[in-house]
Nucleic acid binder design. Structure first.
Lengths: 187, 187
DNA sequence: TGACAACAGTCCAAAATGGAAGGTACGGTT
DNA sequence: AACCGTACCTTCCATTTTGGACTGTTGTCA
């Protein structure tokens, strides 16, 4: 064993890495300070959900798992609906920062049924005609959001705006692709 | 009720739509004529897996589900490893063609951890430096595959080659994005 | 004859998924 | 004040999906 290599085990078992869903919950909680699962649902819908959606049932389950790991804490409304709200603990902040500083390498996948259809013999022009308007609408939506963000100006986190840019570039790529497919003769 | 509208139910319960994994298995079986789950695993790895991966355990489970639905049939090797191999039935061909002709509308998601990291505050330039080489490598790989396909020429299915083009455009978009992020000042 | 790598398949615990169903608060009627 | 409808909010659950650990098989080379 080379010097500098840590001993092949020790006291602490390697802490389970955070799952993407946990990162999303932790990150949204940090933005919000304190939030209920329902708040998280709203939060996901308008922002990170554009590129990584999480079913609502998971937004109810995940916070409790984070509490169990000491990364968040709960608080129960005394009256009314007795809603539970969550906030990130210092350990949670540390875990989130560590993940964010060194995310798993994974380029992602295109994973769209339209592409599967083309792969297995669909007429590309036909598929293109339904895909194009959708992608154009998405692109416009992202561009509007970017403008709105620019107007809002300082004081807000920069991350969300930067990912919007990825959305724009990706939608443009799709539009270019399906436009090409329009030219392809039928199979 | 307007004429031409079918009665609001009848004998046949609505056939469960195919899942993407089932489409992949059916489609690959059709390309191959007859294949074992292991063959499918190899097949996925080199082609459709680039944009829609399927864990190998599913490639063992899914064919049997297709058999149960009458969309494929099994055959057992008489000796040796007694491998099971599958082939698409006429009903399977019909189901696949129907799906391919009218895939669910779903634009897909970017779903990459790197983007999540940026969203939640990572220094975009730092993330970019690990993402860029990976995407460049992927792009080169796709371009090589396209050249190889062009050399192979006629006689092969057109679908796979067309999806490769989507891969190229997508990788270029990523490269453009992360190159922009390199410019962004640190958080 | 054994060792080893590549091949092939099974199994399972732990999640994700998505929808159905169930409660609660609230504003406005009558 | 009783009622209603709607929006809000939460739980539950059956079904898949997931990835990895584990087992066994075949063929090859020393």
């Amino acid at each position: 064993m080379t010097p500098g290599t840590p001993p092949p085990d020790a006291s602490t078992p390697p802490p389970e890495p955070l799952s993407p869903a946990q990162v999303i919950v932790l990150g949204l909680l940090r933005f919000a300070g304190r939030a209920t699962p329902y708040d998280l649902k709203q939060g996901v819908a308008g922002s990170v959900g554009n590129f990584w959606s999480v079913p609502h049932s998971q937004l109810y389950a995940e916070p409790d798992r984070l509490v169990a790991r000491g990364l968040a804490d709960v608080e129960q409304e005394p009256g009314g609906r007795r809603r539970k709200s969550y906030a990130v603990t210092p350990a949670g902040v540390a875990a989130l920062d560590a993940w964010v500083a060194d995310p798993p390498v994974d380029l992602g996948e295109l994973r769209t049924p339209a592409l599967l259809a083309v792969f297995f013999g669909a007429d590309p022009a036909v598929v293109a005609r339904t895909q194009l308007p959708q992608h154009r609408a998405k692109l416009e939506e992202y561009e509007r959001l970017i403008e709105a963000g620019a107007a809002a100006g300082e004081g807000v986190a920069r991350g969300p705006g930067l990912t919007l840019r990825a959305g724009v570039l990706s939608e443009r790529a799709w539009i270019a692709y399906w436009t090409e497919m329009l030219e392809e003769a039928a199979g």
